[in-house]
Design a protein around this nucleic acid. Sequence first.
DNA 1: ATAGGCTCTGTAGTAGGTACAGGATCAAGA
DNA 2: TCTTGATCCTGTACCTACTACAGAGCCTAT
Lengths: 137, 137
Amino acid sequence: MSNHFTRRVIKRGELANRTGCNLETIRYYEKIGVMPEPARTEAGHRVYDGDQERRLRFILRARELGFSIEELKGLLTIVDSDHLACGEVYELTQAHIADVREKITDLRRLEKTLSTISAKCARGNTPECPVIDALFA
Amino acid sequence: MSNHFTRRVIKRGELANRTGCNLETIRYYEKIGVMPEPARTEAGHRVYDGDQERRLRFILRARELGFSIEELKGLLTIVDSDHLACGEVYELTQAHIADVREKITDLRRLEKTLSTISAKCARGNTPECPVIDALFA
DNA sequence: ATAGGCTCTGTAGTAGGTACAGGATCAAGA
DNA sequence: TCTTGATCCTGTACCTACTACAGAGCCTAT
């Protein structure tokens, strides 16, 4: 280990443990360019600092909130630029909210269809099945 | 073309057109075993009859309703057995409805979070951005 | 006969990861 | 100091559910 002035760094396994991210996913995020290439030890082991841990948490949170990788890249571009363009982030978020609302609408319609079909079921072992019939219709 | 007694058959392209299914997807469904291997012309071209068209429509509808391929296989097993076990189909459908409801709940929570965050936005080009901040939190 | 449309096959690509094989390296105990 | 087991490295294959393409063969109308 280098000297007293070295910042505290962690390796991939610890980063994974601390963030709850899968070990391999970290490498994947590096590959697709959302995580920067980290420093390496002499033996080639990746080392991460606090900034990189914060960035990974940001990524994980954005993914949790359903932002696609492409949308996430948009957010990261803004984050990485020195002046934060709040307007752009707002647009991106609104677009994402619209997506989510559309999905909810679709799923509600689906749920209704399934419930309607299912409600007709006699639940016996009769040869007629309204679910199957509905699927054949 | 064979004789007068040959049932009306269509080729892959027409089946795709009639059902709205992608051409390649038909071959894919054959590969994964949800569509049967069709008859072939002497030159090796696939030919489909009415039963097979109905089966494909069934598959497409089940997929539209959000059944996974695995769930679909379950449905098809029941369809293929001579006596339709209505109870089993009911169970499968209920489980699927539960899934859909869970997804809706998740998305609603997500939408709320995003809206709350987004509502704090001043929409200016200020350096502080509540969306970014929330993601970093 | 030939043009252009269809079909065939196998394979690669998509999103967003996850898993594994076969090595190298590190840290801690005997 | 040696050894053992955990961790790390790389590349690649796998997952779902398709979709797209290349290069070949076939089919039909003119």
